[in-house]
Nucleic acid binder design. Sequence first.
DNA 1: TATTGTTATACTCTATAACTATA
DNA 2: TATAGTTATAGAGTATAACAATA
Lengths: 179, 179
Amino acid sequence: MTEAVRKAAKAAATPTVTSRAESLAAAELFQLTPADVDLDILPELLGYQLRRAQVRVFNSFLKRLEELDVSPGEFGLLVLIGANPGLNQNALAKAIGSNRSLLVPMLDKLEARGLVVREKSAADRRSHAVVPSRAGQVLIARLKGVVRDHERQVTTPLSEEERQTLLRLLCRLNGQEAE
Amino acid sequence: MTEAVRKAAKAAATPTVTSRAESLAAAELFQLTPADVDLDILPELLGYQLRRAQVRVFNSFLKRLEELDVSPGEFGLLVLIGANPGLNQNALAKAIGSNRSLLVPMLDKLEARGLVVREKSAADRRSHAVVPSRAGQVLIARLKGVVRDHERQVTTPLSEEERQTLLRLLCRLNGQEAE
DNA sequence: TATTGTTATACTCTATAACTATA
DNA sequence: TATAGTTATAGAGTATAACAATA
């Protein structure tokens, strides 16, 4: 295996909740091509179109989130904390596909803003039970509203039926049988 | 605008052909969640499912490419060079959404492998016309075969009709009216 | 001895700016 | 003066390993 390939594989295998779009961060495969170059087979590839769509949706999502001064990574983390109050940092890190050490500065920031609280766990005094504060709960509710609105906004090129079809096909592709 | 948000926005706006899946890089929003945590509204979001699908497709794509010792970034670059022989490095960099300086080491590697050639342009002796070598053309042809095969492989959960529907909806979402 | 949260370190990727050679 | 290719430097993001406290 090549160096570059190994690295890209690793990055893709454990993408994180923070940073650079698909990045892709790490390892971004396909690109929005502005020029009048011949893209050959690229436009026919699912991966190419998936990447374009993801970048597009991500960017507009980013703009909407700015209103509330929340990064996409923070959004995901907040939603998870809101839906699963009391998880310890380790579990939370795994849930967002990250690890303990990366979660620390994220929580530091959210805690400094008074959105979440690290409670000393009585059961296991090594761990912290992470819970949303009152203000955090309010923000999470607002975030959900914003994101639902964004969902409608970003899918304007599609009819409601098409939007649902797209979502259903993606779920199937992702191995999540709809029901 | 927040620091993190600005950075993520920038990264997302100019993702590159190399590395980190979308990573993704840059700023990966949604995550594959293994645990039994409540994902709340996440699974209903197009961005979440798009990201999952992209990571999934990217990873299997990566494995297929390993056979030929080519990274995803190199794949995109090779296809573009094959379809647009003679472009200079600047144009090529823009085409993959990157910049001149990042393209240099990529071309160095491909040239060292004898896959592409930097020809001195007679018209403008500052620039290089990048063209595929004979071996490069052969590899590109093989790559296209691999990628077409991968396309079928990765879409096995879908019928052929569904695959085309998905591609069509993605194109529409991307603002590329099918015809 | 193992695990939680934390910190420190290294490594990768990317962006920016400087350098040269041509124009 | 501006542009093409190149190189060097710095920055952000991430992974890994080490640390203290607790189990």
